[in-house]
Amino acid sequence: MIIAIPSDKESLDSAVCVSFGRSPFYCLYDTETKQSTFLVNSAADSPGGAGIKAAQILVDNKANILITIRCGENAARVLQPANVELFKALNLSVADNIFAHAQNKLEPLKEVHAGYHNGH
């Protein structure tokens, strides 16, 4: 199973990024091999549709779980049919959130926001 977490830096002690679609990196943690890798988010500086592209990147990288502080509705529309489960991140490091998930201490992410889209 692969857990994805938006992260501010390329390290396990990084804070979870407050943005999903515009996070600079994603930590991908494989629960079977216990290996973590970091992806550079190529959607981060998109003028629009960052959440859609970021969600596509995670689906293409076979993520099963997303631990995030928030998620926009367009991203959620991509993640849901791909059966990616969403959990609300705690105000802890990436590593501690992976640990909290293993301990079943994370709540499902209940709300998706309408996005912070600018005018065109």
């Binding site: 003028p47 629009g48 549709g49 859609i52 592209k53 969600a55 689906v59 991509v78």
Partner: peptide, 8 residues
């Protein structure tokens, strides 16, 4: 514009 996504 990232207006497309492909799931499956």
């Amino acid at each position: 514009f990232n207006a497309l996504a492909l799931i499956g």
